[in-house]
Design a binder for these strands. Structure first.
Lengths: 231, 231
DNA sequence: ACTTGTCAACTAACATGTTAGAATGCTAAT
DNA sequence: ATTAGCATTCTAACATGTTAGTTGACAAGT
């Protein structure tokens, strides 16, 4: 066992491909590392190693860290250091609350204004989900799951919505990594998605909201159950 | 008439008091100037004058501008310039949508978990609102209005909620500046607040949500009506 | 053993120099 | 008169030097 505060491992995607500003790329790389728990909570980020590893100067790294701080993924102590933030049960609860608020409003609006083309896209996604479960492709299903929710938000016509939803539930995303994939849960998830899809297809706002509430309501208990072992 | 793109006026709060980091202070000052429309949409922010005016170097100004960009208040064109963002009707609609989603979830939770002390605080705020209307103190009422909504969010126990709500509806805040204070509207607002307050006091989630929906629903038509004259 | 004071090392925050790309105005050619 | 090329002059983005504050270790005193 080492100190409670460990240094960051230098296992980052190494190269920086050539697209977007340096700040954006650095931010993306660090964000991914934190969300995937490659950088564990409490690890302190030191600028110098990051600069050396990524082959950039301190300015873009500092900018990227500032953005991470505003997203709540790191805690920066002035004149001292920057640490990957812990995520408390309170923060997760807040993330779930915010996420649910947005998803419920989303699903209501989509059920109200659904176009034929949108219905077709959702239908295609649903069939993809079934297919991936038949093939036992867990990561694939996980992706299709996110796409499903992403499609709904896209259909509202509000551009920032998906970003906001993702930002407010970043801590939840981190916690979800720790959830082991429960076999039965996948099938349940599909069934819940189908219920949501059907309610939307019927343009039944109320039913769609209830279905979404039931769907999202499954998450919190599983995280709380996990809390018995982790900080 | 000058060019469609005007330079920023150097009428900023001049001095920088001594609290918080420079970046934070600069960010706060600029944000206020943008939200109050002292910096009109389309005006381009030039770093040099700002640095000179505020007596700081370019680094904190750059950081502050980066934060404003992530909030959507400015559009930064790489290697070219930074302009105060326009706010389109679409963005305002999105802000209202997001705001409503959060307020509805908030009011439901508060109605569910209200404590005696919280009820007392809300009651005090309601009486303050009545008082301020009697005294014809419009700015005072505006502040009490914001406090009312702020209290509700505070009572959820979620710390970031108020920040998120404010951030997602920044464009709405800017648009609201343009709304002339309609005399009758103030009294209506008070009545709507009272309806919300009563529903919460009765711990009636559903009624509280409906009352809040009705309250927030008043805003959008007034902004759309304003659109007939402005870009 | 435990506290307390000092100091050295490290950090983010800030200042400033450098670079590359975009916009604008000018000139020249059609 | 209109447009195409060119150069000047902006800008943000990036690199790097400087400063001041925090931390942690060690030593001295209790």
């Amino acid at each position: 066992m080492s100190r409670p505060e460990n240094i960051d491992a230098t296992v980052l995607p190494r190269i920086e491909p050539s697209e977007g500003s340096l700040t954006q790329r650095v931010h993306h790389v660090l964000k991914h590392a934190i969300l995937s728990l490659d950088f564990p909570p409490g690890a302190n980020l030191r600028k110098a190693p990051l600069c050396e590893r990524l082959g950039v100067s301190r300015a873009p790294v500092a900018d990227a860290i500032a953005r991470l701080a505003s997203e709540g993924l790191v805690d920066v102590v002035p004149q001292s250091g920057t640490r990957v933030s812990y995520f408390s049960m309170d923060e997760i609860r807040e993330g779930v609350f915010l996420r649910e608020a947005l998803e419920l409003a989303t699903v209501a609006k989509v059920a109200r204004d659904l176009t034929d083309d949108q219905r077709k896209q959702l239908s295609r996604n649903m069939r993809l989900q079934e297919l991936l479960i038949e093939d036992d492709d867990i990561p694939g299903f996980y992706q299709a799951d996110e796409d499903f929710h992403g499609l709904l938000m896209e259909f509202t016509g509000f551009r920032r919505l998906a970003d906001v939803a993702q930002t407010v539930s970043l801590q939840v995303s981190r916690a979800r990594i720790l959830l082991l994939p429960t076999p039965g849960r996948i099938v349940e998830t599909l069934a819940e998605h189908q219920t949501i899809f059907e309610a939307i297809s019927n343009r039944d706002e109320h039913a769609a909201q209830n279905a979404m509430r039931a769907h999202l309501g499954q998450l919190m208990p599983r995280i709380e159950q996990l809390e018995q072992q982790k900080p």
